[in-house]
């Protein structure tokens, strides 16, 4: 079966998580819930990127033991998406911390986390 290999399952899960996170951002009213939805979207996009770089029946891109130096290009998966996701995860935690601190400042000022209470940016 084509659709039951690892990369299809993970891409499918990534898409579903992305849709759920998007729905959460749009429909939730609590600011912290919106930030949680953002972090779900983060995880899903990392999942999709890594699984696009996966190649069937190949090992991790570390040249050691079973992977020989000469035919490394025939035995390893794609290292570029993995390096990309590596930096993206670290940036993601920074962005999450920044959003949380802004939410905290808003709560200190207005004592409310509901996004409907903030009228000053509405037009």
């Amino acid at each position: 079966m084509k659709y039951f290999s690892v990369e299809y399952i993970s891409i499918f899960a990534g898409f579903i998580l992305l849709l759920i996170g998007l729905w959460g951002i749009i429909s939730q009213k609590n600011i912290l819930k919106i930030i949680i939805s953002f972090s779900i979207i983060d995880t899903s996009i990392h999942l999709i990127l890594v699984s696009v770089g996966y190649i069937k029946n190949r090992t991790a891109p570390i040249i050691d033991g079973p992977v020989t130096r000469a035919d490394a290009a025939q035995q390893v998966t794609d290292p570029v998406p993995q390096a990309l996701v590596l930096t993206a995860i670290v940036i993601g935690v920074g962005i999450t911390a920044l959003m949380l601190s802004y939410a905290l400042k808003l709560y200190e000022k207005n004592k409310s986390l509901e996004i409907d209470k903030y009228k000053s940016l509405k037009w």
């Binding site: 190649i55 570390i62 050691d64």
Partner: peptide, 27 residues
Amino acid sequence: HGNDGLNETANYYATKGLSEVGAANLV
């Protein structure tokens, strides 16, 4: 439909990376 080989950039990194950089971990 899944990958069946490295693309050009990744292929360069996998083949030349060892002699140019010398790190076992390609990532």
